[in-house]
Amino acid sequence: MPASTSAVQPLLQATNIKKSYGHVQAVRGADFTVYPGEIVSLIGDNGAGKSTLVKILSGTVTPDSGTIEMGGKEIKFDGPTSARDHGIETVYQDLALAPDLDPASNLYLGREVFRKGLLGKLGFLDRKLMLDNAQLQMAQLGVKLKDISAPVADLSGGQKQSVAVARAAMWAQEIIFMDEPTAALGVVQTQQVLELILRVKAAGISVVLISHNMPQILEVSDRVEVLRLGQRVARFNAADATVDDLVTAMTSGTMEVNN
């Protein structure tokens, strides 16, 4: 049990979350905790309920029951927009980028800034401001692109992933959920994205990582929470855990007794 962190108040605390689709109980009373400024991995075998739980915590799916607290106060999401209003961003596995638009346009997609004055009232965009801020954001995260005005489609897989992460980091005040951020990437690009995740953490934003890559999880995470059959069955401090511990918990863990 994470004795070192349990004294700190959780940033996000989900308790006894349940969600069924017809007769299928995807999540059966799952708990999940995120502490401030940490990288916590959520792992579990296929069908353990990871994606459903993440969808619930990022506002895209409404749970049947259970509570979600942020900073000790209970909150309810009615859509991804309201999760965003609470400072939660999600990097989807498909990245949700518009490939024909440049990175700056993607960073500001749906949150465009208008020009000042009359032109702004007419819907004119402040492209310069958005471009400058986007460049600043990416520079802070160490995302380097040769041509900032090239459409996202022309970027490599790792660069696309970086743009998606940079967008989330730009708007997230509290937490970013990342669903398999390195699944489609090569070795070098994976390393770049992991470094990017560490920089996001350094900027004070908590990261929830969903991944199947155990060594990678242990490399970047502070903590690991294990989901099995729709319930949390184990929690580890990444520093104290081995890949075997994680796999054992994923495949044969039972409902955790304490906490």
Partner: peptide, 22 residues
Amino acid sequence: QTRFGRYTYAIGSNAEALRRTG
């Protein structure tokens, strides 16, 4: 130059991405 135009491109490029931003 306008947001109307930007959304027009975004819908054709990835409508789901635009929808998810609200």
